[in-house]
Design a protein around this nucleic acid. Structure first.
Lengths: 249, 249
DNA sequence: CGAGCCGTTGATAGTCATCAAAATGAGTGG
DNA sequence: CCACTCATTTTGATGACTATCAACGGCTCG
């Protein structure tokens, strides 16, 4: 009855949207021992090469997955928004193949890795919901391969903006615009570009009336055109129907 | 007892390497109704936007995952080798977000999607093995994001060659070299380059003694140097220890 | 009010794309 | 068995997109 303000609320809501859960499933999750942590910008949630013992769920704030190349450059591989579980990707593997770091200040809930593993394998609905969640994440990564592999700078950036906007909206976290929680350098690392070029492309998008900016607040005066500029289609996000309706512009 | 030549043998062996299966798990898989198909080069195994009803396992030959952009260019997102299940990525989602196409002639086994789903959710060891398999695929996609996002042409191509070689070797499918089952145009689509540039880079690698080529047969006279040139480390492949030993050069 | 990060701008260079066309090899049919 | 066709590989010339280098301006914060 008090699930309204439970820190896992958004995460459970998300799981439920992928696969309807029974009350018993929900309760099993809510009964798990958990720890709430406040984290600063830059804090590591997962370290590449590490053996994850907890599975963190993002409650507030944003995070990103990243890998480094041999010569030290960085590629951001995914963005995590409130309600995302940050460790599903590593939960069943023994050693983490990438790092996860906070993009902003925020709070996370740590669950026991083995607890969650056990629930996923013993409760079919929960297992299915978790699998679907990880598969959607994988789908997003596929789209990112396309994004950095086959789109030019303008398309890449527009695409990332569209994706972020739609995902936020599907979770009820934004309306027509949002505060982009990253620096242009980080945006460069998600698009495989340099910060300088990101800056120029953003200015171009602004000059063409596809976005407006004031500090890091971004708005989309012409959402259709931006989607087109980013070759964006929400299909790969596998959003449930209701959310598509609700989020539709 | 006759599992020696069962078409699923390699797939089951692969699952088992991710998570030890009991005989009952193995038998449950072997008891599934299945259909064996021979496919030509170019045949579709999955179509983007389609609703997959079967889950195909590659027995012989090679396949690839791809997506198209709005302007018609193609990005190859993953390579499938014998023993890979081609539809695990879509098995729990309702609509496929990418296509899978045969790279060479080959044969596949079709399993019933719902049969496999049911097994995955009802047999914990099997479920865990399948989850781990999909997570390793996701890990490879993350590395590909890095590859096309942050490495130059030479590194990208060397990296793809290394990955392919190691994966083949881990399945006992190659020794020191192998027949690259794709055209330079397809290699371009996996690395986000143009065929012309791929050709030049391959010649460069050959001139530097990192590879030798005769038709599509590729060999690695200096494996260490090639790994270095491709910024390659097998860690992200999550190969089991035994296989690392067996495959170690 | 200084320090530092971030964003912005300009000039130049390089990697890779594009366009075009020839060479090579495989498969086909006469 | 050879001519023919088509896909693929190879080569050359040119140009575009993006990186790199450098420096300055604006905010935020201690």
């Amino acid at each position: 009855m008090t699930t309204e303000k439970h820190p896992l609320e958004r995460f459970i809501w998300e799981l439920n949207s992928h696969r309807p859960l029974e009350d018993a499933d929900r309760q099993a999750l809510l009964d798990l021992p958990l720890r709430v942590r406040s984290l600063d910008h830059g804090a590591y949630l997962v370290r590449e090469g590490g053996l994850p013992l907890v599975c963190s769920v993002l409650v507030d704030g944003f995070a990103f997955r990243q890998k480094l190349t041999g010569d030290g450059s960085r590629q951001i591989i995914a963005l995590c928004i409130p309600g995302d579980a940050v460790d599903l990707q590593n939960m069943f593997l023994d050693v983490s193949d990438h790092s996860v770091q906070m993009l902003t200040r925020g709070t996370v809930v740590d669950l026991n890795r083995s607890d969650l593993q056990h629930l996923a394998l013993s409760r079919p609905a929960l297992g299915a919901a978790i699998i679907r969640t990880t598969l959607v994440e994988a789908s997003i990564m596929r789209e990112w391969v396309v994004n950095v592999g086959r789109r030019d700078a303008r398309e890449r950036i527009a695409h990332v903006l569209c994706e972020f906007a739609v995902r936020l909206e599907a979770r009820g976290l934004s309306k027509a615009g949002f505060e982009l929680p990253m620096t242009q350098e980080q945006l460069a690392d998600t698009t495989g570009l340099t910060p300088v070029h990101v800056n120029r492309v953003l200015k171009g998008l602004e000059a063409d009336g596809l976005i407006t900016r004031q500090r890091r607040m971004i708005q989309f005066p012409d959402w259709r055109a931006l989607q087109h500029a980013g070759d964006f289609s929400r299909q790969y996000l596998h959003l449930p129907e209701e959310e598509i309706r609700a989020a539709a512009n």
